[in-house]
Amino acid sequence: MDRITHPATRRSLDEYAQIRYLDPSECCFKKTEGGFLSLSIGEKEQYERVDLVRAFPLSDSDSYISVRDSEGNEIGMLESLSRFSDSTRRLLEEELGRRYFTPVIEKIRSIEEEFGYSYWDVDTSAGQRRFTVRRGHNNLVQLGGRRVLVIDVDGNRFEIEDYTSIDSRYSRLIESLL
């Protein structure tokens, strides 16, 4: 193939990647009356509804968060939540918590195992809940260390922060299910 020199090649790769990291000092997130997040960047850009998408939902949930408009197009990325003011950070964390709804299991009331399914009754950070987990190696996932993700039959997720610190009969059961 013949070699054509094009000015485009002189641009740096970063420009091609075109990732726009949003400057925390320019972003103004607000909770709308309708329950969504709105965003205004500087003076000119206004979005009535934005959605937040985590790049690393499991390994680093508070960094690299994509902000998308109602059509799903990326407006930009937030490098880290820690760079925002406390109130904005809380707003963003709450929104993320609702989208990535993963209640933390605080107390296990009971787990009953029967015929390849386990029936859980737990108190979580979002209230009490019963759910059913199918036996199988992918429904209880160890996320490094003692963190365990529990996935129920409908695909809802629950988190146990440290499975060894809960009631020993259940921690042994959980270990056998892992």
Binding site: F36, D51, R54, P57, R98, R99, Y100, F101, T102, N156
Partner: peptide
């Protein structure tokens, strides 16, 4: 949504 749903 990734891990829940909304009626909007």
């Amino acid at each position: 949504l990734p891990l829940s749903g909304i009626l909007s």
